[in-house]
Design a protein around this nucleic acid. Structure first.
Lengths: 200, 200
DNA sequence: CGTCTATTTGAATGTACTCAAAAGCGGTGG
DNA sequence: CCACCGCTTTTGAGTACATTCAAATAGACG
């Protein structure tokens, strides 16, 4: 697929949400770069200052945090037409606190903070849209946090497969366990127990 | 204190972050309303559509979620010069998923979504500032989430009193426990154990 | 087919929980 | 000023659940 066709997917996503002139579309297409990542490749890594924000044209990512003990904690999974980035440290000079890894061959559009600011000056409506996108991210994270502290792992699991059906075919179990905040062993036992309860 | 003097505190907060003309300042001062809340009064309540965002001139708030079992979970505490609101549902038509309660007599400046949008049209620089403020909130929440799933309650407790010294004099223990995601009984035992370890 | 990784299962451990009761503390009214 | 009440905090004992460590099984991939 050629470059312009791929970028059309982002333009289409944006045009569904805000009004864009032809010049706006040109500027947007020019600001983003196409990048392809193979399975297991990283888009950004914890501790490095490589700051990038990406729009997923195709593929899947896992965004995770690696704690002092070396344990990985999945913050979220990201799919087609989603944004991936460390929204918290993008725009700041600090190194990222997160890792983003492709779970399969993925094609993305990337932008750096400077180009993004330039784009905002040129297309003010984007500023507003990104405020709403960040707000949406905040809403999702807040819900996830509240669910994590108030619901059981089983309830969180049901919520995950409700919101992202088919995820089990896409990501290995131990990563789902990590997303749920439990160990693979606990996750295995939990599923077994849930199946038994369904039968009774 | 008179109205204009109180509103100066917000203008000052904003002017430190973005350039504002005299007209901008006028418009901002006009858009916000002063409100006083007594101890234990609510700014907004879960399930109600009363959507409001507030800037704290003086006082303290706890923002919490009440789950199906009736347990309260403190999402965050908010102090002078902070924003309080359900950023996730502000601007949406859904009822709030959170409660905000004054922990002491508090004076705030409030605005509703419609006035806020009007203000953004009039003062575009505010749009940008609020994008950054939301981004900051997202960063804080993300850090809190990652800490919750990767650190012990004791570590989270130390982090809290590091970031908000004097909080123990201000809020009752069971609310701190709620913030940490443990029960008051567990919090009490935890503190006892921490003191013993310090001595040895 | 063999190796490597992912998943399942088992047993013992630990940590926070539940329920229950006692102790501490603050405020109110006599 | 003291006695009482309500609420918060502490302590205790038993329980539940996820964890750890270890081993076995199953699957994926070359």
């Amino acid at each position: 697929m050629n470059e312009q066709m791929l970028k059309q997917q982002l333009i289409h996503y944006l045009a569904e949400r805000i009004m864009l002139s032809e010049e706006d579309k040109q500027a947007i297409a020019a600001a983003y770069s196409i990048q392809t990542l193979k399975r297991k490749e990283f888009l950004f890594e914890q501790g490095k200052i490589c700051q990038t924000e990406a729009f997923i044209l195709s593929g899947t990512f896992r965004v995770f945090y690696c704690d002092q003990k070396g344990l990985e904690h999945v913050l979220y999974f990201a799919f087609k037409d989603w944004w991936v980035g460390d929204m918290a440290s993008f725009n700041s000079t600090e190194p990222s606190g997160l890792n983003a890894q492709a779970l399969e061959e993925s094609v993305i559009l990337t932008i750096d903070p400077i180009k993004k600011e330039e784009l905002f000056s040129r297309v003010p409506a984007l500023e507003r849209l990104f405020r709403l996108i960040i707000q949406k991210h905040l809403a999702v994270l807040q819900k996830r946090f509240l669910l994590t502290i108030s619901a059981t792992a089983a309830e969180r699991y049901l919520e995950l497969i409700r919101r992202a059906p088919g995820i089990e075919q896409l990501v290995p179990q131990h990563q789902i366990a990590s997303y749920l905040g439990i160990l693979p062993e606990s996750f295995s036992r939990m599923k077994k127990q849930m199946h038994q309860q369904k039968k009774s």
